[in-house]
Design a protein around this nucleic acid. Structure first.
Lengths: 210, 210
DNA sequence: TGAGCAGGTAGACAGCTGTATACTTTGTTG
DNA sequence: CAACAAAGTATACAGCTGTCTACCTGCTCA
């Protein structure tokens, strides 16, 4: 693809550095970026047509990174029982080691720029699809329709992203967030397994366990 | 409380008008607001110390509105069976009739200003607590511990807010989003009901239904 | 009637912004 | 070595921004 030359990379990394603090991608100024990157403001124009294009390129840069992460995830061999635990742990660890990229993604997904929103949504969609296909291929959840697995995968991706900021910002709650996320996933799939049973029968089953 | 005088209200409403398009609360300028409100830029200082305080007041304005909505929701008498359906329908209808407030909430919850994030988080927390207490009081879900009901309420509030933007922006998908949200909630509670059962037993139960 | 005060206005300040044009450096290739 | 393009720089422009000080209105209450 586009091999990132020095200045271009410097600008993108400057953006990531600035955003982690209290900024959003769409709020960054061209001169601000150049200052942070240690470059002349006009150098920006050598690499990007305008700030919109810059935003998209930053997203692309992040996407490449995340894809590599997902590829690594799929190589892990999990037992069905521990799949959700391992996956959740892996994903949050990824967030922790890429806080800037994570912050950008979360912030722009609902941010002011429709272009960036759409781009991120597509990225999210692809990740969810990949997760679903992984579950299906490895037959981790038997007895749930492929459509439902896709749906739950989407919901899970959304939920995890939603909690990513809290995870990054509140170190003392990380373990709790991770456990909650696991429970979230397990409940979704377990709930799907008993979708067809009437509520009363379920409540009887629940009672038996106590 | 603080009776909103003309100018103050004009500025807040100007903010809501501007944000619905492609802006965020934190990106609004003082002069921009005054222009939209039809006031002199300096009038801003008669009502707000700075833009941070302004943001908080806008959030407060929205919060009052939402509280009224929730109060209305609790007055609805639901059967256990249809509770999730009715609630979801009500919430999304609220979003639809208050698009600006909804957009602000979603956008700033993960936005660049830590102050606004914290304020919104507290608001969300309160809503989730109220939802959980409502479920418990009316005994809508038997056989699930109060802690779990609180947890699921939080997750639900987060999920709904996450989807609110899609709901507003994609009219053709509204029905689908609403149904997905219902399934989400039902699966969470149903999953919680069978939390203690081993996965194999569940898969047998699932098989029986087909 | 008149003092006090909140709300709204006017003009000016430095400092920032995106952008355009023109120039210099640097690296690659024939 | 020379030529050429890519990357980086310098200067300048108009237009925007938040904030300050000063002034003016219209209402309330004694």
């Amino acid at each position: 693809m586009s091999a990132l030359t020095g200045g271009k990379l410097k600008l993108i990394q400057a953006a990531l550095r600035l955003i982690t603090e209290t900024r959003s991608l769409t709020s960054l100024g061209l001169r601000e970026l150049a200052r942070e990157a240690g470059l002349n403001p006009n150098t920006f124009y050598r690499h990007f047509k305008n700030l919109d294009e810059f935003g998209l390129q930053v997203l692309g840069y992040i996407a490449e990174d995340m894809k590599a992460g997902v590829r690594q995830l799929r190589q892990m061999a999990n037992s069905s029982e521990q799949a959700s635990h391992d996956t959740v742990a892996f994903v949050y660890r990824y967030f922790l080691s890429n806080p800037a990229a994570t912050t950008v993604a979360v912030r722009e997904l609902h941010g002011p720029s429709p272009i960036l929103r759409r781009a991120l949504e597509a990225q999210l969609h692809a990740s969810a699809r990949e997760m679903a296909e992984d579950i299906l291929e490895r037959n981790l959840v038997a007895g749930v329709s492929p459509e439902t697995i896709h749906e739950i995968s989407h919901m899970t991706i959304r939920y995890i992203l939603f909690r990513a900021m809290d995870y990054l910002e509140k170190p003392d709650q990380r373990e709790r967030i991770q456990q909650e996320t696991e429970r979230f996933i397990n409940r979704q799939f377990r709930g799907a397994l008993v979708d067809h049973l009437p509520q009363k029968e379920l409540e009887i089953l629940a009672g038996k366990g106590v």
